[in-house]
Computed example of a mutant assay.
Amino acid sequence: MTSVDAQDQRDPELPGRLLTTERDVLIPLLRARPEADFALPTAACPGWTVRDVLAHCSAALLRAVEGRLGRGVFSPESNDRDIAERAEWTNAMVVDELERGMTEAGPVIAAAGGVLDMLALGEWVHSGDVRETLGEPGAYAGPGQPHALVLLARATREKGHLPLHADLDDRDEPLRFGDLSGERPPARYIGGSATLVRLYAGRPVPDGGAGYELAGAEKEELNIFG
């Protein structure tokens, strides 16, 4: 397992590894699904279907690959335009573009010095959104999760997010998130890694949160995308 606490220094290749690891899970899954599944609404992204989420993801990655990143690129308006531009595409074309983006974006993100690392993390979270909507196991988990937790830990530190000590049911060692140098005592989380990702990403938690404990913070405070 990749140690989160050992990742105080940025690993420029990590976002690319996260993307290609998730690519190898997500793309075959999508190619095996019936066309009707792409029209399913996603609970995590109200108003967006599975296809909309995939189109947003593929467009964002291709913007990075092709160097088309400017002011307001990832605004809601820009996202809607990207989805609309692909409205006439087949589902297979959207999946093909997504595969290309997940394959080619890594070196670009690595060379950007850290400013695009959250793009890889966001893509991985959206893959979880899609997998959950399709009823597939491993949403916000799977082989890419150790990489995602490293990126998440560093992102929360860099953003000066609230400190949090996490005792995870499915990890041998506790993990630390957020800015631990301030006066606020760390919040305490006990539960699964996938649920912790959901909280940080502002995603719905199954069973109304009965499967985890959070002390010293409100769950809304953890959301790094909101």
Score class of each variant (00 low, 15 high):
Thr2Gly: 00
Ser3Trp: 05
Ala6Arg: 09
Asp8Tyr: 00
Asp8Gly: 05
Gln9Thr: 09
Arg10Pro: 01
Asp11Asn: 13
Asp11Gly: 08
Pro12Arg: 00
Glu13Tyr: 06
Leu14His: 06
Leu14Gly: 01
Pro15Tyr: 07
Arg17Asp: 00
Thr20Pro: 04
Thr21Arg: 09
Asp24Trp: 03
Leu29Arg: 15
Leu30Val: 09
Ala32Thr: 11
Arg33Met: 11
Arg33Val: 11
Glu35Asn: 05
Ala36Gly: 10
Phe38Ile: 09
Ala43Val: 15
Ala44Gln: 14
Cys45Leu: 13
Pro46Thr: 14
Gly47Thr: 15
Gly47Phe: 12
Leu54Val: 03
Leu54Gln: 10
Ser58Glu: 11
Ala60Gly: 14
Leu61Thr: 11
Arg63Lys: 12
Arg63Asp: 01
Arg63Glu: 00
Glu66Cys: 06
Gly70Trp: 04
Gly72Asn: 06
Ser75Tyr: 11
Pro76Gly: 02
Glu77Lys: 12
Ser78Leu: 05
Arg81Phe: 10
Asp82Phe: 02
Asp82Trp: 05
Ile83Glu: 02
Glu85Phe: 05
Glu85Pro: 00
Arg86Gln: 15
Ala87Pro: 04
Thr90Ala: 09
Ala92Tyr: 04
Val95Phe: 07
Val95Ser: 09
Val95Trp: 07
Leu98Pro: 05
Leu98Ala: 10
Glu99Cys: 14
Glu99Phe: 09
Arg100Ile: 03
Met102Thr: 01
Glu104Phe: 07
Pro107Cys: 07
Pro107Thr: 07
Pro107Asn: 07
Ile109Asn: 08
Ala110Lys: 00
Leu116Gly: 01
Leu116Asn: 01
Leu116Trp: 10
Asp117Thr: 06
Asp117Ser: 03
Met118Gly: 13
Ala120Thr: 06
Gly122Asp: 14
Glu123Gln: 15
His126Arg: 15
Val130Gln: 10
Glu132Met: 15
Glu132Pro: 12
Gly135Glu: 15
Gly135Pro: 14
Glu136His: 12
Glu136Ile: 10
Glu136Lys: 05
Ala139Glu: 03
Ala139Cys: 07
Ala141Glu: 13
Pro143Trp: 06
Gly144Asp: 01
Pro146Arg: 01
His147Glu: 00
Ala148Val: 02
Leu152Lys: 13
Ala153Asp: 00
Ala153Pro: 02
Ala153Arg: 09
Arg157Ile: 01
Arg157Phe: 03
Lys159Met: 08
Lys159Gln: 06
Gly160Met: 02
His161Leu: 00
Leu162Ile: 15
His165Cys: 04
Asp167Pro: 02
Leu168Ile: 14
Asp169Trp: 10
Arg171Thr: 09
Leu175Ala: 05
Arg176Phe: 13
Phe177Pro: 02
Phe177Thr: 03
Gly178Ser: 04
Asp179Lys: 14
Asp179Arg: 13
Leu180Asn: 04
Ser181Asp: 01
Arg184Trp: 05
Pro185Tyr: 11
Arg188Pro: 01
Tyr189His: 08
Ser193Met: 06
Leu196Cys: 10
Val197Cys: 08
Arg198Lys: 15
Arg198Gly: 10
Arg198Phe: 02
Gly202Gln: 11
Gly202Arg: 14
Pro206Leu: 12
Gly208Pro: 03
Gly209Met: 09
Gly209Ile: 11
Ala210Thr: 14
Ala210Phe: 06
Tyr212Trp: 11
Tyr212Gln: 12
Ala217Met: 05
Glu220Phe: 13
Glu221Ile: 12
Leu222Pro: 07
Leu222Val: 10
Ile224His: 02
Ile224Lys: 03
Phe225Lys: 04
Gly226Met: 11
Gly226Asn: 15
Gly226Pro: 08
